[in-house]
Design a binder for these strands. Structure first.
Ligand code: MN
Ligand code: MN
Ligand code: ZN
Ligand code: ZN
Lengths: 136, 136
DNA sequence: ATCCTAGCTTGGACTTTGTCTAAGTCAACA
DNA sequence: TGTTGACTTAGACAAAGTCCAAGCTAGGAT
């Protein structure tokens, strides 16, 4: 994740304590936190950090492609630092646990030309659902 | 959609003017309206219908399996009456237009056993993204 | 035909999630 | 060390959805 800070400095970011803390909180590849969860963890390291700054920083990281936004239900978006390794998500229908998964093959291949309706199709997000080991 | 009203009566639903109007608004197979859009159209037929009733009715239809909830972005959920014909969605990244699409094969087949982490996987939702004919 | 009542509807308060702004602060460069 | 534009902040605001107490009504009972 210091790689991330390095890349951000190269892109002209001012390296503030707040941004450093948000990056630290997102460290790890299998993290899917909501903005409020990121804020709560950030506050425990830097008590005065504001919600607005967390939202701003997350939004900037998404635009830069360093973090993915995952909207799986109608609730809060989740922020996923595993942005450089293409993957999909498997979610427990009961408790909401999220796992990164890697389906075989290219998901786009399953969509035939006559089901594309003239769209230039560029990506696919798959959400697998089921009960996790703890819930069944 | 009168089929729907029939099925609902069989399930012990009281057939109110409000529920009739929501069912009418959802008539058609390729409709993906937000709750507020459903409410706006319902109001034009039954001016006194409340937002709460629209939310209640949509929620009940979802529980009964007559309508699907589609959460594609972090915005409002969309309600999809095409619940009896399995399908996926193709969404324009620019204008948000939604199309029903039917990919080949079973989406679950692409997820190998060693990527299931002990989950009892029961379904998959795929969101294809790209630019629609009007936007490229 | 009228009555009864559980189930339905309503307006509005409330919650959650997210955006915006004006004023103050500070990282980075000179 | 000083300067300055980028950054941060608190709090107001907005959108989407939930909840509740009070009133209404569909449909079975009489
Ligand atoms: Mn992930
Ligand atoms: Mn659909
Ligand atoms: Zn679970
Ligand atoms: Zn478009």
């Amino acid at each position: 994740m210091s790689d991330l800070l390095e890349r951000l400095r190269e892109r002209g970011w001012r390296l503030t304590a707040q941004r450093r803390v948000v990056a630290e909180v997102l460290d790890g590849d299998h993290v899917h936190l909501t903005a409020d969860e990121v804020h709560a963890r950030a506050v425990s390291r830097l008590p005065e950090i504001s919600r607005a700054t967390v939202y701003n920083t997350l939004g900037e990281l998404v635009v830069l492609g360093e973090v993915l936004e995952v909207s799986t239900d109608g609730r809060a978006k989740r922020y996923d630092p595993n942005a450089h390794h293409s993957h999909q998500h498997l979610i427990c229908s009961h408790c909401g646990t999220i796992r990164d998964v890697h389906p075989a093959g290219d998901p786009l291949a399953a969509l035939p030309a006559d089901e594309r309706f003239g769209f230039a199709v560029s990506g696919a997000e798959i959400t697998y659902r089921g009960l996790c080991p703890d819930c069944h």
